[in-house]
Design a binder for these strands. Sequence first.
DNA 1: CGTATTATTCTACAAACGTAGAAAGAATAT
DNA 2: ATATTCTTTCTACGTTTGTAGAATAATACG
Lengths: 123, 123
Amino acid sequence: MRPSLSKSEEELMNILWRMHQAPMRDLIEAYPDPKPAATTIATLLKRMRDKGYVDFKKNSSARLYFPLVDKEVYFSGQINTLIRDFFDDSAGQFASFFTKRTNLSKDELRALRKIIDAEINKK
Amino acid sequence: MRPSLSKSEEELMNILWRMHQAPMRDLIEAYPDPKPAATTIATLLKRMRDKGYVDFKKNSSARLYFPLVDKEVYFSGQINTLIRDFFDDSAGQFASFFTKRTNLSKDELRALRKIIDAEINKK
DNA sequence: CGTATTATTCTACAAACGTAGAAAGAATAT
DNA sequence: ATATTCTTTCTACGTTTGTAGAATAATACG
């Protein structure tokens, strides 16, 4: 089991997911101001490599860093943790909580219903 | 803005939510084996008080600790953070991802649809 | 090539966390 | 009332995190 990412590692991970693959300079570039020091990013990248979330390939010049874990996969993990830790492992309970609590617009709710219907039909 | 809870603080918070209010001995009791040392719990409670998530009242004998933040409130916060950090702040996007990704049973999906319909009607 | 620039590693350090012993204070049991 | 037990605070210590300077290695530019 991979150690989990810290907050600021997650932030960088998000940038990586958006860019798919990038050299460090572009990663820094992608940060909102105030951008962290280059060495800070470097440290994070190193730690994330150690944790197994990132790797790089070298094509001539600078390293191209890229994520080793899909956003979807990572994300489902997060949700599942939340569900396990707070909802007694019941996704249904979580879902209903979520639906009531989040302020989805009427349109979003309709869209969601559509998806659910489709899912029901798949089963 | 309250500082956020760490993993082990969250665990204790969950116990508190379940028990509503309890003296330390009962909190320890509620932990799964191997239970942490009493002083560990005490430290956590202290830190959680400092962060504003817990308080206690004294009625004669030992302190009764209780949560200052509702599970629902805390929890919505967590989800919103997730949505903000990973879904570009779109709850709809999150919802559809969630629905597709989680293995809800047919019944759970039906129940969820019911809730959604109710929500749609409210709007 | 040789120097300027950028990338990477090393080292560091303060704050937060996980965990708990030692000490002190409070409750209780006999 | 005193010994025993439980609670709370204090202190501590190793680990992880956030952050970045100094040093070094790699690359680019003239």
